[in-house]
Design a protein around this nucleic acid. Structure first.
Lengths: 189, 189
DNA sequence: GAAGTTAGTGATTGAGTACTAACTTCGCCG
DNA sequence: CGGCGAAGTTAGTACTCAATCACTAACTTC
């Protein structure tokens, strides 16, 4: 029932992988969990991807790409403070509506750290390149001031971490954010 | 040879656990790896701690506590901008000299997120409490302005993430940091 | 120096996991 | 229809890992 082309399947595997890896990280996620979510047998994943690492890599790249596209479309035609608010709004909305993206990011960071620690720099290269694209996507519209962009990204990272820790959005840790980044609503899990 | 009291052993298990969990995360670290580092048999860990989770929790608490103590001792007697530079310096030095602390932090965040996702809020409570202590330790000396403290912590988180991704410290992503937080040297792994 | 306690080990188990190989089913095209 | 390639499955392997149990060695107390 419902056969797909290998390419389409790979696509749905990536989506499922983002979801599962976001929750369990690389080691905490079994390929079986991913396969179940796709609705396909577990060994079939290994016909679509050479191994588990490749699936994780694809999920990481997807996550970076989507965030970059979000930045790009939010900022279209805007500059300076307007651009800043636009990205901040778009990003906070992403986080509240789809926490997977946020958690997958964190998972990606720790996975990179682990890979680098054992001397594997390939994964790191990919992620750093993706991050720099993200950076540059924000950098120009925000005014091309490294200090500004750094501060902006820093806020983003703090938001990630606070949200990951599960601080409810009416907690006082959120007090100090500039209003456009204040999140209203609640992170659903 | 070299018998220790259970309390002393627990202490060295925690130290080893911080090191190992920092690299592999919860699921990527075997209790055997920890035991090997301690120099003790793997089953003995389960006489010192009820289970693996408890070891991870202890390592997380230790990590938070040490960071808080670092903040507190760096900031002693200082206020405002001076305090800010003092903490920033101390923290960047910690990161360069002992990357375990940094990585353990990230591992802790993703573990909390995972725990919360499956409805276990106990671990989250502990980590959030520890984080708030950390927050408050910095908050007062920095001038008790929520915006200032938020910005300060945000920079810290960005540093964590950039360092975790393995950006060398002469890379342009580090350009935008205020000078006191600029890291010189190189992260050893 | 015997009695009791605490530190520590070896062997094992049972569940889970990434990955392989060999087989089956579907859909399309002549 | 028939057959062929691509999509997908079932069965299986080799391995890892948390946790348990039954036990021994070393220290302490009386």
């Amino acid at each position: 029932m419902a056969r797909m082309s290998a390419e389409e399947r790979r696509e749905s595997v990536i989506r499922a992988a983002v979801h599962e890896f976001a929750r369990g990280g690389y080691h905490g996620t079994s390929t079986e969990a991913i396969a179940k979510r796709v609705g396909v047998s577990q060994p079939y994943l290994f016909r679509l991807f050479p191994n588990k690492q490749a699936i994780f890599l694809a999920a990481s790249e997807r996550c970076l790409k989507e965030t970059r596209e979000l930045f790009a479309s939010a900022v279209e035609g805007l500059h300076g403070e307007e651009a800043q608010h636009a990205i901040a709004n778009a990003y906070t909305r992403l986080i509240t509506e789809d926490p997977d993206k946020l958690q997958m990011q964190l998972q990606m960071y720790v996975a990179v750290a682990a890979a680098e620690a054992v001397g594997d720099h390939e994964f790191g290269e990919v992620v750093r390149a993706g991050w720099m694209e993200l950076w540059d996507t924000a950098h120009l519209p925000l005014g091309a001031d490294p200090n500004e962009t750094t501060t902006f990204m820093a806020y983003g990272m703090l938001i990630n971490v606070l949200a990951a820790m599960g601080f409810p959005f009416d907690h006082r840790v959120w007090e100090g954010f500039y209003p456009s980044a204040r999140i209203t609503g609640r992170l659903e899990r």
